[in-house]
Structure formats: C-alpha cells, structure tokens
C-alpha cells in the first residue's frame, strides 16, 4: 500500500506538517470539549489519532516516557495531558480492547454549501445529552403482548405438527420394511414349500 500523501492544509506548498498541525488542533479540541463538529474528512482522520492516544495512555500509564511525548505532541493545550491520564484513562480502562472510545455521526449536508460532508465526533460517556433519542420500549403494549403470545402459540403448534409428521413418516417406513420382510419370508416359505413339494 502506498503511504498517504498529505495535501498542504494551510495552502499550496505547506506540506504534511500543516496538515498534522490541523489534525492536532482537532484532537486537542476533542479532548477539551468531548464533542465537536467538523468536516467528515477531518473528523475521520483525527479519530484514529485520538483513539490511539487514549489506547497507549491506558496501556502504558503516565510514567512511560514515549507515551508522555506523544501526549505532549498531540495535545496543544498542556492542561489536557492531566485530563487524559486522570479522567479519560479511568473512564475508558474497562473498554480497552473491547470497543472504541469515540463515536462519529454524519450530519446532514447544508444547502447551499461547499459540498463538504459535515460530521460530529465525540468521546463516549461525555456529559452532553445523547445524540440518539431513547427509543421507547413497546414490548408491553397490549397489542404487542397479544401478538407475542400468538407467535409463541403458532411456533409451538408448528413444532408439534412437524414432530407428528416425522413420527408418521418413520412409522410408514417401518411398515414398509415390515411388509418387505413379510413378503420375503412368504417367498422363502413358498420356496421351502416348493422344495418340500419337490421332495414329496
């Protein structure tokens, strides 16, 4: 795979450094505010770096030199280093190796707009109100209870009818076998009889 070529984020000729600077600003803002809104491309790219930063912070702790260097690099505001180790590491410790620490949502396109898809990036467990409204549980509505019980009834009856079918099929087979055996026996008897006839 070819390495990704960074476009100059601060205008032509600025190179990958300017882009990294931009992403650093996004990561810093994410750790500061816990929910940010930006273009899809920026959110998507910054997300991986933020995830990785929290991951190594959980793994290595605040006594590891390389980890501290990374935190120092990605967090432009230095009070956030403290937040990373004291707030986020305890929060995401249980999620380590299980699920992501961040969530990303696509936002509707603005019309007229510049065509850049907007999206929303957040740290899980943030204090803001949830993005998705809580879905009402409709399990106990009268009609749903009735339908659920109907479904159970229907499935159990289906099972019973299937099992009775199988049994009847089996019994048919055994009947056929019995008949075959009987006919064989009769044939052999008749042969015997013939033999006896001949002997006599």
């Amino acid at each position: 795979m070819k390495p990704r070529r960074f476009a100059g984020a601060a205008g032509p000729g600025t190179g990958p450094e300017a882009r990294l600077k931009k992403i650093r600003r996004v990561v810093t803002a994410l750790i500061r505010h816990e929910r940010i809104e930006s273009t899809f491309a920026k959110c998507d790219e910054a997300r991986g770096y933020a995830e990785r930063l929290i991951q190594i912070a959980i793994k290595n702790g605040d006594t590891h030199r390389e980890t501290m260097d990374m935190a120092d690099y990605w967090l432009e505001e230095k009070d956030l280093v403290h937040k990373l180790f004291k707030v986020l590491v305890p929060r995401y410790g249980p999620l380590y190796d299980k699920e992501s620490f961040t969530a990303m949502w696509r936002l509707p396109n603005k019309l007229p707009g510049d065509g850049q898809g907007m999206s929303l990036l957040e740290l899980k467990g943030n204090p803001w109100p949830p993005i998705q409204p809580k879905q009402r549980d409709t399990k106990f509505l009268l009609t749903n209870i009735l339908l659920e019980e109907f479904k159970k009834d229907y499935n159990s009856q289906k099972k019973i009818s299937q099992s009775t079918k199988e049994i009847s099929e089996k019994t048919n087979i055994s009947k056929q076998e019995v008949e075959e055996i009987d006919s064989n026996n009769n044939a052999s008897d008749s042969v015997h009889n013939k033999d006896t006839d001949r002997r006599t």
Partner: peptide
Amino acid sequence: HFEDEDPRLVNKVF
C-alpha cells in the same frame, strides 16, 4: 394510559 412506558397495569385494568 395505554402507550405509557410500562402499560402492564393498564392492560390488566382494560
């Protein structure tokens, strides 16, 4: 009412 969060009591009453 019938569309409450947990309408089981209401169902019984009905």
